[in-house]
Amino acid sequence: MRIGIDARELSGRATGVGRYLAGLLREWTNGERARSHEFVLYAPEPVGITLDAHRFATRIIPGTSGTWWEQMRLPSVAAADHLDVFFAPAYTAPLRLDVPTVVTIHDLSYVAHPEWFRLREGARRRWLTRATAARARAIVTVSEFSKREIVERLGVSEAKVRVVPQGIDAPAGLAEARGDRERAEAGSADLSAVARSAEAEGAKAGDADPRLLYVGSIFNRRRVPDLIRAVAALARRRSGISLDLVGDNRTFPPQDIDRAIANHGMTGRVRWHRYATEEALRDLYARARAFAFLSEYEGLGMTPLEALAVGIPPVVLDTPAARESLEHAAMYVPINGDVPAVALALETALFDERARARVLGAAPAALAKYEWPHAARETLAVLERA
């Protein structure tokens, strides 16, 4: 079988969808079942992943990555490759391509909350996603929550939608490195003595300059200004608290993140990294003691899972998608905008050893669903059946 793939998200700086596709391709490179297939990748510039050129051909189609490239430039090139199926990993697919299509729709934020998107962008996304979903042979999505959204909001058959959770890209070896560092900092202390008061634990942890971490593109739904306010409130009663924000600002209506940091007196204590290399990101995870991700709408929030995989307890909003993915392995706060409640949850995640142990103890059960070999195998099966 010859499988065509829209690989635009692998060009340039890979974000969520790019990492999703890269994870699948790595498994298909090594998987025995995938060896019987040939893959053709289409992108406007070279892709940032090394693959076997004999099995993974790359077609560079010059142009600006966008709707025109997807709908007008890609189909004519792909048609000449005599594909058996086409895989679109990012919500939409070329409508003029006359081969069976499988599309991954990660979430429907632009359908559920059009107010978060510019008028033209939101209309384009909604129209193309509806048209792609209606035309596709199968739809892959990453959670039961997103499946319900797709069926209800796009009006497609439930049988057409297959839930295939993706894998987790936690930095290799980081959990062990964090454990070694924390054991070294603890010295000969009896770590099982959880009966000590939270205040005493907080004083001990505070000596190590406790750091919070947020990773992800900054959208309005992720409430980064509320996070900054909560960290500022916590910093007034806990010395040494700081926050690293990692992600570019994609908010609409626009939010001024720099001003929010300055207005709350957190300049120098909230560090905003618009982009971080893999090495820099690994260092930030290694230094973090707790993770914060206050998103009110996700198909599947991957960065809290990645934090959990390396031994960092996450603080998240109490949403259906978060409950589905993290189960008992998170500290939940109400979705009602209660900033003091967020500050209290952050304080608990940083300093309450009993609560931290409870969350991290629940991690293996939550993380078991997110394995790249399973994701690649099940996604390939959907493509084979299409």
Rank of each mutant, 00 (worst) to 15 (best):
A366L: 08
A57C: 04
A368Q: 14
R250N: 09
L21T: 04
R250C: 02
G48Y: 07
V164E: 11
R162I: 14
P364C: 10
A355Y: 01
E115H: 15
P364I: 10
A208E: 12
P62M: 08
E176W: 02
R8K: 14
L317G: 07
D283H: 04
M331P: 00
A292D: 06
I168V: 13
I49P: 03
P254L: 08
V99M: 05
I335Q: 11
F145N: 05
A175S: 09
V270K: 10
N30E: 15
K204C: 06
P334V: 11
T129K: 12
G48H: 04
L25I: 05
A184E: 14
K147I: 00
R274G: 01
H328S: 13
T67V: 15
V342Q: 10
A172T: 12
A80K: 14
D283S: 14
A343I: 03
I335V: 14
A345H: 06
R181Q: 10
H264C: 12
G268W: 13
I257T: 07
A205W: 09
S192V: 02
S217D: 11
G187Q: 05
L284R: 12
E324M: 07
I261G: 11
V151W: 09
E199Q: 13
P94N: 09
S197C: 01
M331K: 01
V99T: 11
R125D: 07
R274K: 15
V111R: 04
A131W: 02
Y42K: 06
V47L: 09
R323D: 06
R211P: 01
T67W: 14
R162V: 15
S188R: 13
A172W: 00
L346H: 07
R130A: 15
P364E: 05
P46G: 08
I61G: 14
W372G: 09
L212R: 05
V194W: 09
R183E: 12
Y42P: 03
P171C: 05
I168Q: 02
D244L: 00
T129C: 13
G361T: 02
A276Q: 04
V99I: 05
G216I: 06
T141D: 08
W69N: 03
H54C: 04
S157K: 03
R124C: 10
A79K: 14
G18H: 03
R183M: 08
R237S: 15
A368K: 15
S76M: 11
Q71P: 04
F351C: 04
A292P: 02
A343P: 03
A363V: 03
R223D: 10
G31R: 12
L83E: 03
V17A: 14
L284V: 01
A203Y: 03
D338T: 11
I60C: 09
A365I: 00
G155H: 02
I312N: 12
A93E: 06
S217P: 05
R125F: 07
L344Q: 14
R274C: 01
V215H: 10
G337K: 12
R59C: 13
Y370A: 03
I312T: 12
R229L: 13
T129M: 08
R221F: 05
D6T: 11
A43I: 11
A362M: 01
V315L: 07
Q71K: 08
Y297E: 13
T29I: 00
T129L: 06
